[in-house]
Nucleic acid binder design. Sequence first.
DNA 1: TAGTGGTCTAGACCACGCC
DNA 2: GCGTGGTCTAGACCACTAT
Lengths: 245, 245
Amino acid sequence: MGTTQLEQVPEPKYWHLKTVLTDALDSEFSVGEILPNERELAARFGVARATLRQALEQLELEGRLQRRRGVGTTVAPPRVGVDVGPEPHRWPGLPGEAWQTDGVEPAAPPAPVARLLATTPGTPVHAVRRTRISHGQPVATELLYLPAASLPGAPDLTHGDADAAHTLLRLLHANALEGQDRAVELGSARAEDARQLDRLPGAPVLVVTTRYFSAGRTAAVAVATYRADTCRLTFAETGPLPLAG
Amino acid sequence: MGTTQLEQVPEPKYWHLKTVLTDALDSEFSVGEILPNERELAARFGVARATLRQALEQLELEGRLQRRRGVGTTVAPPRVGVDVGPEPHRWPGLPGEAWQTDGVEPAAPPAPVARLLATTPGTPVHAVRRTRISHGQPVATELLYLPAASLPGAPDLTHGDADAAHTLLRLLHANALEGQDRAVELGSARAEDARQLDRLPGAPVLVVTTRYFSAGRTAAVAVATYRADTCRLTFAETGPLPLAG
DNA sequence: TAGTGGTCTAGACCACGCC
DNA sequence: GCGTGGTCTAGACCACTAT
């Protein structure tokens, strides 16, 4: 960074910082190690704390760092691969799943989900909340929206625990599942999801939307929210494969 | 926002701002419309420009806004769905694909890719660059890493145009494809990808890594970089499906 | 040249985890 | 209480686009 460099097109300081820190992480630090605090690092690199933070934010986004208020910044372990299908077509909530059922509540689906379910926007439906645990840490939360049309004979909308949710899921399983469908996009964690994932609101998440088809219509929609900093979503092979990796 | 509210747990200003802006976007603005500039908006809400920008950043991350230097901030159209499989297993570069082949260059695969390919880290291999266009806009760039072991009789490493790349791909197609594999994770655009995607370096992207298996090993690895702000990755149904949505 | 978003500074105070 | 990261301010200047 001396005076010998002309920097015809000066790259932003935070970008350069990121490069330097990435190299340092690769060579001088090991997983779990605590970095110097932000004020110290900023002083060491001769930049304002805000600039240093801009670099740290990107590194956290890339899963290289983990920052916790009141604690410090640590070197993150490599992202864990989380399998998200395509599984053999199965209803959610069947035994042998990676998901844990937490309960059920009435919830008005977000507009795009209401459109998929062909319900009137703003009208609450049964929403089963589930959590996915991997390596002892929650990696995803999910809201499974179940319109009344898919639950013949179901009780009125109400809050309930895991048992109540299982009762609803059994009604869902009575339908014939004809197929399913997935989409992945980037989002930011809503307050409740953030709390369950041990992150701050607005943290980047991968949103996986699954549609379940039955009787020629969308019988259920699941919106799962995965921690983007720690998760790599894997779509495993369907056919016979050699598993070379 | 008057004095009547106690705010026991005051939520951050930028978070509240984001909510207000989201509602305004839903009700008062239409796609493509230009918002007031940042200084104007900050003044209108009585916050510093940095705080306003924190809210705008999140909205851009969620695909609600589009910001361009020298131009302004506009309301973004809904994300486009981009199909990323699972397709019937096919080598990349066959006719009928959504990808356009740009050329080939020697490139040292990143460490994780080198591990998958079982090549020695730091050693360059053939890297075919491809671009995916959707609705007239580039939505993804890809580097397809081809180790020499998968290209019997290939010429030495060299830069080349689309024709040279096609020649290499034909050699690849001579192998028997046994299966493939995908993973999705969050990343930030490297300088070159950012340029091709018309974004700034560091912009959030969805990184799709595809492994191609042949003869019991990983014959090729593709690292595709999708614009996270404008893309929703869809994993279409493999089996027969009613297509109700 | 004027106006936009992008970068950067040097502070201040707050919320949280730990001792 | 102390140290950490998180939020916020009020400026300044730069890079880019359109006119």
